[in-house]
């Protein structure tokens, strides 16, 4: 009887020791794994650091030769070709105007269309139609941009060229900002519509019910209750879509041309910042030359633009989330 008790006690002690040993090993393993997962998460910060560091360090060589002021506010961009006097020009404004022109045309298409689609999907559409149309429209966002470039260059431009402009303007060129902008508008419609729709769906039902009870029509509820309540989310969708349009590369490279020009005339041929980077990257520019550094200077400007807009857009998204 007593012996049994002792045996049981030692067994229990053994088990306890075993358990504590397991726990210790588990704790060590746990700490190791913890640090491993942490390292994975920190990779994202390393990436950002890498982007900023490589853009800054490579464009340093550029800004040593070209003053920042001349770069940001110069109105002629010809870093490869020399003019009649044998000078090159590094004023980035023509690239900026080209980029903004195409993005503005895209916004002119995508903002009204995307908002209308969002209102329809959030306020009007029966569930079944909503579930069919949403994924189809999202296919637009998944198509590679080089395909849109093909579409703009070989289909939309020839179609636009049939519209007679003669009395007022020259004929539309093969490469033009208009066609690239319109097609880019099509491309970013789902960005505007799905983010705006999310914002509208998040508006509490009670607000709508109150407006209906006061005798408002469906359109009045949509435009005067839901849209204002979801406004920061909607504006955020515009900003994020615009930023996407500014960073877009293959479409503007293929369809908008390679002639940097300070203009806001959509039927002219222009060059976007991204298209310039591709143009030089295709040429396998050797490292350390001014041309090579120029790519990074333009890239730095592009990065700063899009980062600013993304931060603003995300701030707005978060604000509207906190409201309800």
């Amino acid at each position: 009887m007593a012996r049994d008790g002792i045996a049981r006690r030692t067994n229990r002690a053994d088990a306890a020791m075993q358990l504590s040993r397991n726990r210790k090993r588990g704790a060590l393993q746990g700490r190791l794994v913890h640090w491993l997962f942490f390292a994975c998460a920190v990779m994202s910060i390393v990436t950002t650091f890498g982007i900023v560091a490589s853009l800054l360090s490579q464009s340093l060589g550029f800004f040593r030769e070209i003053p920042l002021w001349d770069f940001l506010f110069g109105t002629t961009w010809s870093p490869i070709l020399r003019d009649a006097e044998g000078n090159r020009h590094y004023g980035v404004l023509p690239l900026v105007s080209g980029t903004v022109l195409v993005a503005a045309l895209a916004a002119a298409v995508a903002v009204p269309a995307g908002l209308a689609i969002a209102i329809y999907l959030a306020e009007y559409a029966p569930d079944k139609i909503r579930r069919t149309i949403k994924p189809i429209l999202e296919v637009l966002a998944g198509i590679p941009t080089v395909v849109y470039g093909y579409f703009a260059l070989t289909f939309v431009t020839p179609m636009l060229q049939r519209i007679p402009l003669r009395p007022f303007q020259e004929d539309l060129l093969v490469f033009n900002a208009l066609s690239a902008g319109l097609v880019m508008g099509l491309m970013i419609i789902p960005m505007v519509s799905s983010l705006s729709e999310d914002a509208m769906v998040a508006v509490p039902r009670s607000l709508r019910s109150a407006a209906y009870a006061l005798g408002a029509t469906r359109l009045e509820v949509s435009l005067r209750i839901v849209v204002p309540a979801a406004l920061s989310g909607i504006v955020a969708s515009f900003i994020l879509a615009f930023s996407r349009a500014i960073g877009e590369t293959m479409l503007v490279t293929l369809a908008a041309g390679a002639t940097p020009r300070l203009t806001f005339n959509p039927i002219e041929s222009i060059q976007a910042m991204t298209a310039f980077i591709v143009q030089l990257a295709l040429g396998e520019t050797p490292r350390g030359t001014l041309e090579y550094n120029t790519i990074f200077a333009v890239g730095l400007l592009l990065f700063a633009f899009t980062l600013g807009m993304n931060v603003l857009g995300q701030f707005l998204v978060r604000r509207f989330r906190e409201e309800y």
Partner: peptide, 15 residues
């Protein structure tokens, strides 16, 4: 991470 998702792809190319 959410900012990285919005960085233009050509900038990754430069990186």
């Amino acid at each position: 991470i959410s900012n990285l998702a919005g960085v233009p792809s050509i900038v990754y190319g430069l990186l």
